[in-house]
Design a binder for these strands. Structure first.
Lengths: 193, 193
DNA sequence: CACGAAACGGAGAGACTCTCCGTATACTGG
DNA sequence: CCAGTATACGGAGAGTCTCTCCGTTTCGTG
């Protein structure tokens, strides 16, 4: 790769991250090109589709997902607490940019998507958390990791469009979590309201 | 209203229903105008925004929602069965057109939306089903009707973008249902897999 | 330093939304 | 039945965005 090409590549990703966080993932591509000081043609050569650009932007914070999952597993917290913490992290990460939940969740399980590898990272992290709880017998049978990702993704998508009361996400997550934990693990006192 | 205006109004709604079902709710407005044999100006005068048009199209099948809810209530089925039937109806109705789940669920609770009244119909129907089950003590405490609509809407949104395995929706609904039913109502044999 | 490959950039085509306003048509009173 | 007017029509066109094409510029090597 030529030096000027590399410089432009980095500049575009940097600016895209900025613009995406200001205007959401639907921000005009031309805006990004202009603000990066390159022509539209240059941007499209580096990133043929919008998803390729998103992929590059998202890459930087994806490893935080792994760390969060590992931490939840290591904490050894009971299922309800662990899942709530993990799911809230999951939702907040994919919701970092407006339009993010829809983009990411719709690419889940589609191996041809440019952002598939990021979705895999999410799914595998989720899998680690679920497997850990399953080993301890705290999870209902027949729970599939990909479906849980979609379920949580669905909540994030809904939350992303229009402003929900802040505790609304929490309530929805509670329902899902109750649906996931094994029924022979009674609800603790504090969880009931 | 002048006779020609009325005729155009009806024609536009009829064509829009057709086009929306072919191309989804994002179909070009101009296409609808052309196929209805009117100018763009005419269409926009009748329906200033896309949502106004969607509202008119959706109106026709919204009463089927009420009927479905009433039937589920009248059947007296146990919570898990009743909810599954109701939620599957809910999902399939709002998914009739591509883009429908997102449109409808994002307008949920936003009284300024042109399709708010349709969302209210959905929410109230859902409320009837939930209230009925709550009276019979089959529902967990603290379940809010609007949040359940959003939760199911989230599943529908995810299902709407990209083709999911057909039983995937069923599995996700199962999780939500398990999270909604009261924990002192044990799972029946057939529901476990 | 010169030359070929690599990269640049912006003009412009195509798709879509939405408005504006000159023209045409339906209704009403005489 | 025939104005006259309010109402409605329609499509040209401006604005926005995406994406491509290709003439021009720049890099880096021999």
């Amino acid at each position: 790769m030529r030096a000027d090409a590399l410089k432009n590549h980095e500049k575009i990703v940097e600016v895209a991250a900025q613009v995406f966080s200001e205007k959401g993932l639907d921000a005009p591509i031309d805006d990004i090109a202009t603000r990066a000081g390159v022509g539209a043609g240059t941007l499209y050569r580096h990133f043929p589709t919008r998803d390729d650009l998103i992929d590059a932007v998202v890459k930087s914070w994806m490893n935080q997902i792994d760390a969060a999952a590992d931490q939840v597993v290591a904490s050894g917290a009971p299922a309800r607490v662990a899942l709530m913490e993990w799911f809230e992290t999951y939702v907040s990460r994919i919701s970092r940019n407006k339009g993010g939940p829809a983009k990411i969740t719709s690419a889940m399980g589609k191996s041809e998507s440019p952002i598939y590898s990021k979705c895999e990272t999410l799914r595998l992290a989720n899998d680690r958390v679920l497997s850990h709880l399953r080993e301890r017998g705290e999870l209902r049978d027949g729970v599939d990791s990909l479906e849980v990702c979609r379920l949580i993704g669905g909540i994030a998508v809904v939350a992303d469009q229009g402003t929900l009361p802040s505790d609304s996400i929490h309530s929805m997550l509670t329902v899902v979590i109750e649906g996931l934990v094994s029924s022979d693990h009674a609800v603790g006192d504090s969880s009931r309201e």
